[in-house]
């Protein structure tokens, strides 16, 4: 088991490394495809009337004058060892882990990101709990009573759920609950530690709009999985040996049916943690997604790189956790 964990973790690390390299290369190439010179790139970091010397200085500082691989290498070095840039009276230090340093507003990227992680984390975790509970419950009930009124209704709603764009659901919710009947107005993110009740109150609408989309999917997925497993032989065996139906469902049926659900949950959560871009936009939440959108709008390369890497990190880690959980539950996995 230990060896398996090590192997998987190592593979995940490698994956992150590759993703970061590709990200780096893409953002290196993109401006060139769009026809920008490195001088123009550098000029964006200075502001008014950049003098040729200033451009040269920035190019040197940012390493625009070096080949791609050594720029990437410097980036990796900064990640583990921090970096220093010469500005002003004292050199600016970019502390470990140096996810980059934004020359546009003289900020280290990492602290900016960590500031926003709680927002996205709150949004994603809250929504995830909501959709897992509602989605799986609905799916199980539907599967146990296929073709019942509940099943048809639930699956109808689920289909509607996956067909609605989250920015439409979100906007509708805002219109109804924040404007027409302002029971949930003035939605501002509040730290959980400051005021848990306001935290939940102000996040409930984004949670619902996200969860509506996802629980629909999870209900469909759970239902399909349950239908499949409940017709398996071992379920019949379990019933035959006189197990209470509730136990048959929870202990045998659900466990197998949830396997694909958990896999997908890992992917979804990973993606969401890297920034729920649209939801954050609709509800004006200042999370990772909003940060990314802003960084892209500002064309602030260090920020874009940092946030992309963080998002990739979340995806890989969530998938890794799911893999390890499997290995824990099902010994066959770690042997294969």
């Amino acid at each position: 088991m230990f060896a398996y964990i090590i192997r998987r973790t190592f593979a995940a690390l490698l994956l992150i490394l590759v993703v970061s390299a590709v990200t780096f290369a893409i953002f290196f190439l993109l401006p060139r495809i769009a026809g920008e010179t490195s001088d123009q790139l550098a000029a964006q970091y200075i502001g008014k009337n950049p003098s040729p010397e200033a451009i040269a200085a920035v190019k040197k500082n940012l390493g625009f004058d070096q080949p791609l691989y050594s720029q990437y290498w410097n980036f990796l070095k900064g990640l583990v060892g921090g970096a220093e840039y010469k500005f002003g009276p004292d050199p600016v230090t970019c502390h470990v882990p140096c996810f980059g340093y934004s020359f546009k507003n003289h900020l280290e990227v990492w602290p900016e990101l960590t500031k926003r992680i709680p927002v996205t984390l709150s949004l994603a975790i809250g929504a995830a709990v909501l959709w897992l509970v509602s989605g799986v419950t609905t799916g199980v009930i539907s599967a146990l009573k296929p073709r019942s009124i509940f099943d048809r209704l639930a699956m109808g709603v689920a289909l509607a759920g996956v067909s609605l764009p989250v920015f439409f659901t979100g906007a509708l919710l805002l219109t109804v609950f924040s404007y027409e009947w302002p029971i949930l107005d003035n939605l501002q993110y509040v730290n959980f530690t400051d005021d848990p009740i306001m935290w939940a109150r102000n996040l409930i609408l984004p949670w619902i709009s996200l969860a509506f989309l996802y629980s629909a999917l999870y209900a469909r997925l759970t239902r399909a999985g349950m239908l499949e497993t409940m017709s398996e032989d071992y379920i019949r065996t379990a019933r035959a040996k006189g197990l209470v139906e509730r136990k048959v469902v929870t202990r045998h049926g659900l466990r197998a049916a949830l396997t694909p659900v958990v896999t997908i949950f890992g992917m979804d959560l990973g993606l969401l943690l890297g920034g729920a871009l649209i939801t954050e936009q609709v509800f004006s939440l200042q999370g990772i997604g909003a940060f990314a959108v802003q960084a892209i709008a500002d064309n602030d390369l260090p920020k874009i790189l940092g946030v992309t890497l963080l998002a990739a990190f979340f995806i890989v880690v969530c998938n890794l956790v799911v893999d390890l959980l499997y290995a824990l539950v099902d010994p066959r996995v770690r042997l294969s």
């Binding site: 200075i46 502001g47 008014k48 009337n49 950049p50 003098s51 200033a54 920035v58 002003g88």
Partner: peptide
């Protein structure tokens, strides 16, 4: 006179 430090203002 320090556009690389205080870059926002006019000159």
């Amino acid at each position: 006179f320090a556009p690389d430090v205080n870059s926002n203002g006019p000159t």
